[in-house]
Design a protein around this nucleic acid. Structure first.
Lengths: 353, 353
DNA sequence: CTGTTAGCGCTTTCAT
DNA sequence: ATGAAAGCGCTAACAG
């Protein structure tokens, strides 16, 4: 019995069982071309020595690492966390390992980790890119023949499989809802339009206004970082106006949190003074744990809830079809609709139980 | 210029630049023992061919993969997500890649992924184990000489570095708080004691009662799964009694959610009819985004908030000291205190603004 | 059914 | 400062 079985190689097993390394290789790879007796003799030696085959060596030899990369801008954001969970699950079931990379919405870091994943010879990548500026990095992946699938954000000029939410349609529904409640001065807070979701949601917002015959007011569209701080700052700007909006559509839940904070800090009320709608929910507990039927805390935000985990599972499945399947025709875009959840922040159910 | 640079090897670069592969190796490894002229000639060839060295081959040769594993029972649970974020960050800065594994609280799956990580020759593992029953799997790691650090949960009989919360002390503070508010029939809902945190929190609960001279009532200690469903079922059992508790300490936030749901479903109120305290917060948004100074939603649960992200960063740092540093003396246990946040669910600030 | 040979792409060791 | 040889642990390809 060896001290540290990590150092036990296929040769040691071969020696102990009196066969060639190749036969051992056949045994550990479930090949049928091994006689039952030798097989059991080899298996005996394997367990005696505590042998665990090195995937590293196998990967080098087979030119397949059995590894994929999962790249997200912020693991801690529950939206992306769910994507991670879904992707990890599908990958493991397919016998693959997942290298996780958090880019922190940093393009430079994203470039670095992508380079690193190439060096690691991952067989494919599932990525929620930082922005359109990620394009050059993805082109690099393509150059290296590394298959990848885009999640949540598409990038003009990049033809590849993608799993996206229906940003335009979702935004239209949210804004039309506000309009149906009588609002006409509806603002939007979003990040700069180098992110497809921001762009598409803005398009949906514009569409809804146009269909309702409400003339667009460019000053009601505010740019800010896509986080609570951005929401706060953006909302403060809107509140400083004489003709402040009666309703606000924010690009996501985090921006909404900051914006609502600004409203309350100004001594105003949601939804009475300003109504809110946004993408993505903040009621994570109820989302993560389906057991929680009657959620004890009354949810407040009216949202377009996206099936984040499905983004991850579906995206990873598409990736594996590329990796393992035959050469596929063209890029496949999957667009998943969200769930429209009407709650209090929009004013429709104001002051409900 | 090659079609697919992934196939470009050190040999190709050597050939093009007219040197030996060894010299190329020296260049890509920043060795100083290369003349400036050859260096630049090699670098030229590298960029011309689009050569990216294979970490796989390097790993096999050097017997170091530059990879660690991060194993958690549920990535989507924000507590563990924060650990993941912290660990990933520290690992990347140290030049390591992270293989993420989600065990879903499943011992069998945990055993599988650990086996897999051994096969991958990860240099170390940061793990939040499923329970004490993970012991045999960790022993296996030890046998293979793979360093590992325990996060959040310790395991009797396993001597290794660990980063833990102060479960006993935290529980005592929470329960003493309930006692100071006049409660004497205080229940506890927890999972079975094969998990160190459950065990330690039960000890803290018992200590608090004893110090206050309150005779322990074993029937007030309810076992259930450590999720909302468990909380619901456990609480229903407690509510079915004639002498139902006036306060409940749940082992974590998720159990509290389910329990509170049960209370409300029974037509009772929190904290008026039943007061609550627990470990871990559910106000993730405020936790994840420090910008959010004035959290717009009024937090409700009185909790012992644990510094989850620090669990991850610290644990990973300890791991690297083991991996890179000289052979270290003995196991190091880091115990981090939590933040005691008094809010409404305990009744101390009932019906505050 | 089993073994031999020749790598996979890099690095170590020892020369020069 | 550079190179040749050998090998990391495994497997594809071809024997037999």
């Amino acid at each position: 019995v060896n001290e540290n079985p990590t150092n036990v190689t296929i040769k040691d097993v071969a020696r102990l069982s009196g066969v060639s390394p190749m036969t051992v290789s056949r045994v550990i790879n479930q090949s049928q071309r091994v006689s039952p007796v030798t097989r059991s003799r080899v298996e005996q030696a394997i367990s005696e020595l505590g042998y665990v085959p090195s995937r590293l060596a196998r990967g080098l030899s087979r030119q397949k690492t059995g590894t994929i990369a999962l790249i997200v801008p912020d693991v801690a954001n529950p939206f992306f966390t769910l994507i991670v969970r879904g992707a990890e699950d599908v990958a493991r079931r397919a016998g693959y390992r997942v290298l996780l990379c958090d880019t922190r919405f940093d393009l430079t870091l994203e470039a670095e980790v992508i380079e690193d994943m190439i060096a690691h010879r991952v067989e494919g990548i599932v990525i929620a890119p930082v922005s359109d500026a990620s394009r050059s990095q993805l082109k690099r992946l393509a150059k290296f023949g590394v298959p990848f699938v885009l999640i949540d954000r598409s990038i003009p000029g990049i033809e590849c499989d993608a799993v996206l939410g229906d940003s335009t349609g979702g935004a239209r529904i949210l804004v039309e809802h506000l309009i149906s409640l009588g609002h006409r001065r509806i603002a939007m807070i979003l990040e700069d339009e180098s992110v497809s979701t921001a762009r598409d949601r803005l398009a949906g917002y514009a569409e809804a206004l146009e269909r309702a015959g409400i003339p667009p007011d460019p000053t009601l569209v505010v740019r800010a970082t896509a986080d609570p701080h951005g929401g706060l700052v953006g909302m403060e700007a809107l509140l400083g106006r004489d003709d402040r909006p009666t309703a606000v559509f924010t690009v996501n839940n985090l921006v909404a949190l900051g914006a609502i904070e600004a409203v309350r800090a100004a001594g105003l009320e949601v939804p009475d003074d300003v109504a809110f709608v946004c993408f993505d929910d903040i009621e994570y507990a109820s989302l993560l744990y389906p057991f929680l039927r009657l959620y004890p805390f009354h949810p407040f935000l009216t949202v377009m809830l996206q099936p984040a985990e499905t983004f991850g599972t579906l995206g990873t499945q598409l990736l594996f079809e590329r990796i393992e399947g035959p050469r596929l025709e063209r890029a496949r875009k999957v667009v998943l609709p969200g769930d429209f959840l009407v709650r209090e922040s929009c004013g429709a159910n104001a002051h409900a139980a």
